[in-house]
Amino acid sequence: MLVLGVQAVSVRWFFPEVIPHSLTLQPLRSTVTDPNVASSFVTGLCLSLAVTSVAIVLAWPAARTLAGVGRGLGAAVVGVLFLPSLLPAVGLAMGVDVMLIRLGLAGTFVGVLLAHLVPTLPYVVAVLTAAFARRDQRIEAQAATLGAGPLQRLRLVTVPSMRGALMVGAALGFVVSWSQYTMTLLAGSGRVVTLTMVLFAALSGGSPSTVAVLSLLVALPAGALLAAAGRMSGDPS
């Protein structure tokens, strides 16, 4: 990754130079100001944020239930949820694409959002379920005894007590969605263009500096987000 960092601020850095003969911000500037990079960055950001939000909303009730159900049902549900992780990525993306074409959603924002939910949701559900299972329910019961309504309990007790897990789940969901290449390529039919797609296009003909800048633009937010989430979730002891 460091090599990419140096690559991003140099041009014509060829063998056998260990360090570039000169450093320049030119590739960085020209890539960042490229309107397509900007628009794909926004598209990717919006998409991943939307995927994350929908995933949290859908995963919340599911996780709550999962944390309370018996072993058999729980295992069955977890099995279904992790089916996509156990399928070869290329096959899954192809199948989902055909499904979206049938639904008339291929190449639309909503279609790609749905496609991204498939690999994303399981992780969010898993993080929230673990947190729900560990949570101390007596506080909620106390709040209910003290006359708090369901919404109040949710806002004042449940959500704050789940805050860490929500952050970690959101970070994980965002990163999984942000990194999708094959899924976006097929479900988006070239119409929903995220930064990862621009990077792949640049790989087939762009200069090493541009590829490096784009790589960093794709990797740094995701990496930093997960690193931060990891720190926040902290030591499990």
Partner: peptide, 21 residues
């Protein structure tokens, strides 16, 4: 609106898909 594609086949598939739909 320049739509960048990794391969022209993607545009062909888009036209085919629009037609099929």
């Amino acid at each position: 609106n320049r739509v960048p594609i990794a391969d022209t086949v993607d545009a062909v598939n888009q036209v085919l898909a629009d037609d099929q739909a």
